[in-house]
Design a protein around this nucleic acid. Structure first.
Lengths: 133, 133
DNA sequence: GGTGTAATGTTATATGGTTACATGCGGCGT
DNA sequence: ACGCCGCATGTAACCATATAACATTACACC
């Protein structure tokens, strides 16, 4: 992807996301990378924007948080997410049908930039935990 | 829906949303209803939560904003939204296929609470405006 | 070296959302 | 009627998320 190489800030942020088993907010990330020299939210947001453009990172709208993309093909895929509202864990999935649905809903006169599909609910693990209280 | 009747705060907030042709943030709403006696964000959020439970209002995650539901059947529908990032206008749509996609993605061990589908991009009107600059 | 441009850094501020606690008010047992 | 409880609403303070505005550096080109 031609958007440009990653600098050390980008690498650090990507590293922090990769190391986490759940989405991180921009401020979570900031905390993790302070030792690496980043000090301000805007730096994190700038890197995140770049990483998103390259498809390496996705934003989870319902959480205002970000995850490292787990797919092989970072270009042009249209992922959806299954999000547990209790533990915050996210599963990325792919479904070809979503593109068709979005296109028919948007109509020919609308220029689609991105599709956000988020399935919110409670995962088995957390439901088990809640039941055993 | 048994969640309870709407009080005057709820009515005012619903009115503000109905009067707008695009989504309003909680603070937009707050401004509109200050004259009606509401003063604090939390009051708005409480009403919005109730209205969402009743299906009268939807939250657009990508905008952190809310719209009045335009469907007849406020119970149990699973709407998607087409959102213009330039003018902020939103079109609500319904697609039966989404439920199936969400269920197959979530798996049997996941309890689905809500599905958020948002198609982000640029509407014809705004694209026209941009072209003529 | 000088100069224009893009990337990055810094500070401050706007916007969105929640916590904690106070107050009011209707049921209900006595 | 009275006091007590439980729940809806009000108020203030606060935390969290995101961007604006401006300063600085890095680097290509002359």
């Amino acid at each position: 992807m031609a958007t440009g190489m990653l600098n050390s800030n980008d690498e650090r942020i990507l590293g922090a996301l990769a190391a986490s088993d759940r989405p991180l907010s921009a401020y979570d990330i900031l905390e993790q990378v302070r030792s690496g020299g980043l000090k301000a939210p805007v730096q994190v947001y700038r890197s995140l924007a770049k990483l998103q453009r390259q498809g390496l990172v996705h934003r989870i709208e319902a959480l205002n948080a970000f995850i490292r993309c787990c797919q092989a093909d970072h270009g042009g895929h249209r992922p959806g997410f299954v999000v547990c509202r209790d533990c915050g864990r996210v599963r990325e999935f792919e479904d070809q049908r979503m593109a068709a649905i979005a296109e028919s809903a948007a109509g020919s006169d609308f220029d689609i930039e991105r599709i956000s599909v988020e399935v919110l609910g409670h995962c088995g693990r957390c439901r088990g935990a809640a039941a055993s209280l």
